[in-house]
Write a protein that binds this DNA or RNA. Structure first.
Lengths: 201, 201, 201, 201
DNA sequence: CATGAATGAGCGTTCATTCAT
DNA sequence: AATGAATGAACGCTCATTCAT
């Protein structure tokens, strides 16, 4: 069920290229991955990459674009479920745990190789990262402000806590692939950790 | 005052090479940084790099080695200050906030370019990352176990919480350079966030 | 009315290919023109070129062949009009002025890209260029010898003057496309220039 | 004495590259010549080309630049010798015969591969070709106008005759390498041909 | 007749590295 | 300690060409 959501109506060999590239970019970075390696692992010849994409950079951008589209569509599906403010935060954490589980390579690329492009202000990486940060800031700020006003949450400095929560999400996101066997356990412990910190008792 | 701690008794041009390489590796990664660029930014010629180091990889390893030495010596200085368990955790968080402030490039390299080497089990990156994780795990597990036993902390699942705290540290560490102006504020909020979650009231 | 003389009984798309190729070869040379570009400008896909021709070289040869056929058939039409010797030379100059006006691209290819093939003695370019030179030499030598014998022309060294006249034709031929607006004027001035040099007064 | 005038103070291997490239560009054009071939014929490895030049195009431009510098410095040496107007024209023809004899490859490149760059208005080829044409037009127009005014020349249409003379120079220039054994003969015959046409008797 | 998909061969270029000085 | 000159290896990419349909 994972990666397949991206692949509807795409040729098999093109899929292979995208999947191989995604894995290799995650493992070795953009500069560390050669087009020859991608082609070999995809079971095609190098020029086919250039038939389907303008170049290595374009292939990379395609992966970034597709990944962030899936990410944001997941985020947007969240918004519609109102509840207590903590349940909204829990849903956000939950979504990230699921997303990183489904798309570990895509997530790792976004977190680890995208930043090398932040120097270019119009790069697809920069644009999407900014959009992500804005989205999370808006969402979390709203949760915290409402939660504090309704006495659901402790009185805490909002912007710093938003920043902290984004850091938590980022940090847990980066710990993929390597270990993190007991995903279910981590999810629950993280949620409870935040609940104790935020929710008034 | 920062970077200079590494440079005692080192020739000026060698220092320039190391500093230029550190900055460039952090900005563009290992593969993305050419020896020519390093030489230019250091104000020397390429062969001088090879006079002082065996090659680019060796220069990189030197930087990693020096950085982790400073990091671990900071960690070891921590151990000697016993107190309440939460104070120990606070000291750990505090140290990381300070370290990332003093050595942003070194930290960023360790977090973002080291992982591309984890495939090689004996690489200096892999070894140091493992050692770091072990150190943090041991330290935090000890804190949590003692804190729980002495009723200072809530009863929480230890390994997952250790993992979570490491994630928090990692996440906040990655958010360097870009923004995070109010470092002091972040430090306090983070400490309080963890305190509310951990310490029984 | 021009290029159409070549196209009788040829499919429209094949015509497009030939015309696009002719223009591009003249503009960018043989190596500088890609089959993809030809296909695009002809409004077809690349494989269609290979349906109609064995390959790019074959398409090029076809153009050379067709161009030289038209050129030689024009030359042969000349021969039949006897008159004074200078009138024969004038007719030859006249024909070249008209030909280069009708087929500027074909002429330019013959003059500028054919020479890169002269290394291959059996190439269609080499063969036709030799045949052209032979034809012009024979024709002009005959004119000059007869004209001198009949006291129509000054006593001049024949082979060198033949060579010179071929050079004049070549030089004026090359000056197409770029400028040379007043073609009619150039024709007359050239003819009179040669007349004053050759014809006894 | 030939090509050596360009080479003062240049490294031997760099000279080899320039000479090999000059010959190959003349024989096969810019696109038809590979950097590998240049390197092989120069007895060096490919990267050395990139050590001395920014790339193939830059090497080509260097050759064009050097050639035209030599050409224009030759032209400028001409100007200072006033005499009858026809002697000035004779000197011009003479210079071109000598130049094409000394630098046949450079001349051929200027005449045959430069035009593929004329599309780019700021290209070194375009700029130099325009400058050359301007120079020749100015020079020849001056000769003809003065010659006509002083009754040295017949009354002839000046701009067209200028154009014709440039065509003659171009045409004879293009006939390099191929044959043209009796250069001395050609020079004299050409001069006399023009004299009879221009000079009043 | 016509095309989308795919490839073998090779090209211009870069880069880490070495050598002679 | 330091450098200009030079190279082996490989990389991203293009192109003429073919194949299946």
């Amino acid at each position: 069920m994972p990666t397949h959501v991206f692949d509807e109506g795409i040729l098999k060999k093109k899929q292979n290229i995208i999947r191989a590239a995604t894995r290799l970019f995650a493992e070795q970075g953009l500069d560390g991955t050669t087009t020859l390696r991608i082609a070999n692992e995809a079971g095609v010849t190098e020029p086919l990459i250039y038939y389907h994409f303008k170049g290595k950079e374009d292939l990379f951008n395609h992966i970034i674009d597709t990944s962030f589209k899936a990410y944001f569509s997941g985020l947007d599906a969240l918004e519609k479920t109102p509840a207590t403010q903590f349940q909204r935060i829990e849903a956000l954490l939950d979504f990230h745990f699921r997303f990183v589980g489904e798309f570990p390579d895509e997530t790792y690329i976004a977190v680890s190789v995208c930043p090398t492009k932040f120097r270019e202000p119009d790069h697809i990486c920069t644009v999407n990262a900014r959009r992500q940060r804005d989205w999370l800031e808006t969402y979390l700020t709203d949760c915290l402000q409402k939660g504090i006003k309704r006495k659901e949450f402790n009185r805490i400095p909002v912007p710093e806590t938003v920043n902290l929560l984004i850091g938590v999400i980022n940090g847990l996101t980066r710990q993929r692939g390597l270990h993190l066997e007991d995903k279910e356990g981590m999810r629950d412990v993280t949620v409870e950790f935040c609940r104790r910190s935020l929710v008034r008792n």
